[in-house]
Simulated scan of single mutants.
Amino acid sequence: MTRVITAISLMAGWVGLLWLLEGIDFISGHALDSFGIQPRDVGELADVVPAAFIHFGFGHLAANSLPLLLLGFIAVLRSGVPRFLGVVLLITVASGLGVWLTAPPYSNTAGASGVVFGLFGYLLVRGFIERKALDIGIGLVVGVVYGSILWGALPSDSGISWQGHLFGLIGGVLAAIAFRERPGAVTDSAAVRPIP
Score class of each variant (00 low, 15 high):
53 F>T: 13
53 F>K: 07
54 I>F: 00
54 I>R: 07
56 F>L: 14
56 F>K: 15
58 F>I: 11
60 H>A: 11
61 L>V: 07
61 L>Y: 10
62 A>E: 13
63 A>T: 14
65 S>T: 15
65 S>R: 10
67 P>F: 04
67 P>H: 09
67 P>E: 12
67 P>D: 10
71 L>D: 08
72 G>D: 10
72 G>R: 11
73 F>C: 09
74 I>G: 06
74 I>F: 01
74 I>R: 09
75 A>D: 07
75 A>Q: 10
76 V>Y: 04
77 L>Q: 13
77 L>I: 06
78 R>P: 03
78 R>A: 10
79 S>D: 14
79 S>F: 06
80 G>K: 06
80 G>E: 09
80 G>H: 03
84 F>D: 03
86 G>Y: 08
87 V>Q: 09
88 V>A: 08
92 T>L: 06
93 V>D: 09
94 A>G: 01
94 A>R: 02
95 S>G: 09
95 S>M: 07
98 G>L: 07
98 G>S: 09
99 V>R: 05
99 V>F: 00
99 V>P: 02
99 V>A: 03
100 W>K: 05
101 L>Q: 06
102 T>A: 12
102 T>K: 09
102 T>D: 10
103 A>L: 05
104 P>D: 13
105 P>A: 12
106 Y>W: 11
109 T>H: 10
110 A>N: 13
111 G>H: 03
111 G>E: 05
112 A>E: 10
112 A>C: 04
113 S>G: 07
115 V>N: 11
115 V>K: 13
115 V>L: 15
115 V>C: 08
116 V>N: 15
117 F>G: 08
118 G>V: 02
119 L>H: 12
122 Y>M: 04
122 Y>H: 12
124 L>H: 12
124 L>W: 14
126 R>P: 01
126 R>A: 15
126 R>I: 06
128 F>T: 08
130 E>G: 06
131 R>I: 03
131 R>K: 14
131 R>S: 10
131 R>M: 08
131 R>Y: 01
132 K>N: 14
135 D>K: 07
136 I>N: 04
136 I>V: 09
136 I>W: 00
136 I>E: 06
137 G>V: 01
138 I>L: 02
139 G>Q: 01
139 G>S: 00
140 L>T: 10
141 V>F: 01
143 G>Q: 07
144 V>T: 12
144 V>R: 08
145 V>P: 00
146 Y>F: 15
146 Y>M: 01
146 Y>R: 09
147 G>H: 00
150 L>W: 03
151 W>K: 13
152 G>V: 03
153 A>C: 12
153 A>R: 10
154 L>H: 07
